[in-house]
């Protein structure tokens, strides 16, 4: 029963969210070689501890979020919009 502080809606139960994946992956250009895509899609670290992951507030504002979470304790360190423009705008507003 994680609780995630959505920057747009407030703190909500994790059942409102759906898990995306590893938030640290930079996807290659569409015309990048197969090997680059292979690495981006299939190679994942199995982190014990802090990792950045994507979640979508699918039963809320539907925004994709970057969530920094401890995979052992489920402690959540930060939540920000995945969209860099929105993240920047929120930071500027603070």
């Amino acid at each position: 029963m994680l609780r995630i502080a959505c920057p747009f809606c407030g703190t909500r139960d994790h059942s409102e969210f759906s898990y995306g994946g590893d938030g640290s992956v930079t996807y290659p250009a569409l015309d990048a070689p197969m090997q680059d895509w292979h690495d981006a899609v299939f190679l994942r670290d199995n982190i014990c501890g802090r990792q950045v992951e994507t979640w979508q507030h699918v039963h809320g504002c539907r925004m994709w979020l970057m969530v920094e979470r401890d995979t052992m304790t489920h402690e959540i360190f930060s939540v920000r919009p995945a969209h860099p423009g929105l993240a920047g705008a929120l930071e500027a507003a603070e």
């Binding site: 759906s18 995306g20 996807y27 994507t54 979508q56 699918v58 539907r62 925004m63 994709w64 919009p81 995945a82 969209h83 860099p84 423009g85």
Partner: peptide
């Protein structure tokens, strides 16, 4: 729908 939102928000903002 989720997929399109993910692409627009995380990959091609």
């Amino acid at each position: 729908m989720v997929w399109l939102e993910e692409l627009l928000q995380t990959r091609w903002p």
